[in-house]
Design a protein around this nucleic acid. Structure first.
Lengths: 204, 204, 204, 204
DNA sequence: TATGAATGAGCTTTCATTCAT
DNA sequence: AATGAATGAAAGCTCATTCAT
């Protein structure tokens, strides 16, 4: 049995270091302004090594995106299985965003700034992921309409926009202002406010 | 008396052509990826002429942003004067976004992608405009809370996020999907849906 | 009979204004760094007009140089006729440089920095003028050697270098330090020191 | 043990190649007219490599100047220590210039054309070096005046101008005419002539 | 004469990527 | 695995020169 805290210098270590460094740098500077040099420096390795683990800057970016989408879609699978009520499903989604923002703010930031709103980086394959995500949320809402759990006089697509827009703006504002999440309480308050307004409206 | 439909080749013509071309190109490629060559080609003029009218690429961008902010802040002034009820103020704001999207989709797109969500391009002076805009919306909502026109158990900042996030997502999705607005009806339906959900909630 | 102080806006006026402005600007920035725009601005005219009076930037420069060389060669003709003794001829030359520095410091500056030591600007035709000037000084000194007015154990070319080098450094240092000439006295003291050392040596 | 005549391709090789190439090109075209392309071509390397070793064109130029000033000031330190008599100090200085002209004509040329007489390139820090050099020569001459080794009826500043002017013109004329120095004899004859005239005068 | 809009070649600098070691 | 020297295609900006008015 290997020692638990051994220094492991296997392939994964460096690859992960580069991945994490890339997230930090791309978060800070944006994809196009992030230089391979910056990423290597942040990772504490030489820049030639980046090309040992990743084919190109673009591929490195795609790996980062895949990481995000995998997590998100996995979460959505879980939601569908674990929850019945639309409120719970959406609450789980909001909480996932807030959790991720707490644990991996760089990844969330990149999703928000480089994908969610950047037409620049949205190559068709990337756009596909994004639309697929929206479709899944729309499905939740249109099912909810069928069960009369959500008003039916507004297109489900519109409801999706409103809901995701609110989530995104919350997260992205925290991201842009470097607003830290202070513990579980604040997360619940934010999620609560958001869902309350979405379901019950801003009117008192 | 000069002929009515004469081709006027005054200074403004070319300057406007460059401005418009820049909007189109920046919309398509993003600010950093937009090359002066592209802009010149799009405007049908030579390379160097861009620098005859604009000091630098950055200044050209700032002029574009100023154009957007001037319009938006002017609109908000007008809102404050013309409308009393919070619903009307917010409806006017939504309609302004939709109107602008119809008339100058490039400008709206640039606002959404390069300002609203791009930390990369947000130099401090630019950030100031953005925060000032959010503050004004927050003011509307916090006044509404004081008059009991809007629920008081959610921070006005949060209400701002939810509202603007919904607006932005609507517009930006249209932008990303090149979704055309089909006439006044659709604009009203969208604005109506958005305000209904925001004020009354998604619940039936 | 035209009025004596009439405002004459003839060809010469503008041409001279451009010429003078060019001297000032080229003095300040050097030939290659001087822009046509700078010259036009300095002359108070539009830059297109420069091309009305001068074929190109290079030709304008050549006209300036011609002005200098014409004056200098005319002076040397006069020297040869008016003075017999080598001391007088050289004194006249030194005084001409100092006079010109007082009257047209820009022209002297340009001669020093752009011609006398700049291989960059020395196209073959320009170099010809410069060598011809050195040859004339050398002729003076070699004649003086023949008459035993100057030591013969040093090549006349070397004597030329020493003499002109001393003159140039005096003038160019004044030029570089913007050292003003204060009246006739100082000119005579400088000329005196220079000729004393040249003829009698630095030894007491 | 490595082979004695192996091709060493260490960092210094290319850096030196670029340095030398830059000297040649700047000598030929002047600093402002020297293009990075020229330098790279002359050095037989690619374009971008210049920027691998030097931060910018300006810094490359500054490194070249530093090389010159370091050598010159070191030589002047040595002079002060090794020689007492003013003749010997100045002779050593002249010989240093001639030596350098033989060994590194480009460097001497650059000093003469880009520094000694070019107000264009003289940024304040560069000017400081130049003035400091003149001050040191002036110090030598004013000490000599105190010891009655040099005439006191001429300002030491003027003596400095005359001496350095003569040296410069000698060197720069050789430089401008691509005059080669033919061995030790010629150097001594030149130095001898120069010092003889400077100390004893041109009169027989 | 006089203006300044218009052109485009040319320059410095950056940086993703390759490759010898 | 690891390094960083080497490459060269872009990109932003400048400016001499031309030309329509």
């Amino acid at each position: 049995m290997p020692p638990i805290n051994r220094q492991s210098h296997g392939r994964k270590d460096k690859e992960t270091a580069i991945f994490d460094a890339a997230c930090r740098v791309i978060r800070k500077k944006g994809f196009h302004q992030a230089r391979i040099t910056d990423i290597a420096q942040e990772a504490g390795i030489s820049y030639g090594l980046v090309y040992h683990y990743f084919k190109s800057k673009t591929q490195l970016f795609d790996v980062i995106l895949a990481e995000w989408w995998n997590g998100l879609f996995a979460q959505m699978e879980a939601c569908d299985e674990n929850y019945q009520r639309v409120e719970d499903k959406l609450r789980a989604l909001v909480e996932y965003f807030l959790d991720q923002y707490e644990k991996r703010p760089d990844l969330v930031h990149i999703f928000i700034t480089e994908i969610s709103r950047s037409s620049t980086n949205l190559t068709p394959p990337r756009l596909k992921f994004f639309k697929s995500f929206m479709d899944r949320v729309e499905m939740i809402l249109s099912s909810a309409q069928a069960e009369n759990a959500v008003r039916a006089d507004v297109k489900p697509r519109y409801l999706t926009y409103i809901f995701l827009g609110a989530v995104e703006t919350f997260v992205s504002t925290m991201v842009l202002e470097n607003h830290p999440l202070r513990g579980k309480n604040q997360k619940q308050r934010i999620a609560g406010s958001l869902l309350t307004v979405f379901f019950n409206g801003a009117r008192p």
